[in-house]
Simulated scan of single mutants.
Amino acid sequence: MSHRNARLTVFGRRLLVERVASGRPVAHVAAEMGISRATAHKWIRRWRAEGPAGLHDRSSRPRTTPHRTPADVEARVCDLRRARKLGPARIGPVLGLPASTVHRILTRHGLSRLSWLDRPTGTVIRRYERDRPGELIHVDVKKLGRIPDGGGHRVLGREAGRPIRGMGFDYIHSAVDDHSRLAYSEIHADEKAATCADFLTRAAAFFQAHGIARIERVLTDNAWAYRKGLAWKAVLTELGASGKLTRAYRPQTNGKVERFNRTLLDEWAYLRPYTSNHERTEALTDFLHTYNHHRCHTALDGHPPISRVNNPAGQYT
């Protein structure tokens, strides 16, 4: 994975190399990409020495980990979890391990949540994800009331901040890649077919700019714009993607973007008491950058979504 403060992803490093290879000075390219000359020279050296492979992140895993729990002990922890459904506090005394160590072992093996296991067999059944970025994109729209100038009830109180007739709603269109959880959102005044289609075009361009070259399938709910909209179907055809609809009244089918909507509310829309609708709208860009590049994602072992794009196999070291 990239360092959480790294300015360049693998895609950005390729751009750096291409611009320098075209004859432009390294100092000029570094300045326009917001990195130091030393960093730019480092990636140029690696590219010249190793080719495209040199632009990928190198493992930071130590050569040896003498204090790591032996593999046979980890296997016994996993066996107790699957067979007896014990938690860290009960497995620890059985094997003479601290509960915190047991918890880390269960997390490492994807067994930290009993709700993910089939009770009779102990097989992990609740987690699913596509094998590669772009294989499936989840799309949804979230409706939010607009904020009047001066603030709504979160700023002025319930009585003074009562909704103003005619303020209307913002429609937040979001697309989330199933494998990497890379997310893209835009705010619009409606959710008509033309709006949804234009959003999908820009979302595809966003994913391509971040290293997801092709979208294969797009999953949506059963809204009219997705079922019948000719503009929506035209964009799918242009992208070479197929459209899929969720089961009626089963939003869980589109669970990844539904979960992203909840994060969107908690960490952007309701994060602080905004004093205007414009202020909330302006904050969306920073939220998306933080979510994609810096926010630790529990489903990705604490890594941000962009790391899954750079590392499609999902193997973290």
Rank of each mutant, 00 (worst) to 15 (best):
I105W: 11
R90T: 13
F169G: 11
H294T: 12
A223R: 06
D221C: 06
A269L: 01
P163S: 04
D149C: 04
Y128L: 05
F169Q: 15
I35Q: 12
R90P: 04
T285H: 13
T281Y: 10
A175I: 04
H3R: 11
R13H: 02
D118F: 01
S242P: 01
L106Y: 02
T9D: 12
K244E: 15
G96C: 07
F11W: 09
R162V: 09
R158T: 13
G243T: 03
A231D: 15
I164Q: 14
R58C: 09
E258R: 00
K233L: 12
E191V: 06
I215D: 07
V309G: 01
L265V: 08
R146H: 06
A53W: 03
T64R: 13
T64V: 12
R37T: 12
G145V: 04
E50G: 00
A231F: 05
D221T: 07
T65R: 15
N222F: 02
V235F: 13
V26C: 14
E186I: 00
Y184A: 09
G134S: 07
E267A: 13
D79Q: 12
A241I: 12
E159T: 11
K192H: 12
F207L: 09
I215K: 14
R68I: 08
G243M: 02
L245G: 04
R19S: 09
A204V: 06
Y270E: 15
L55D: 01
V20I: 12
E279Y: 02
V257I: 13
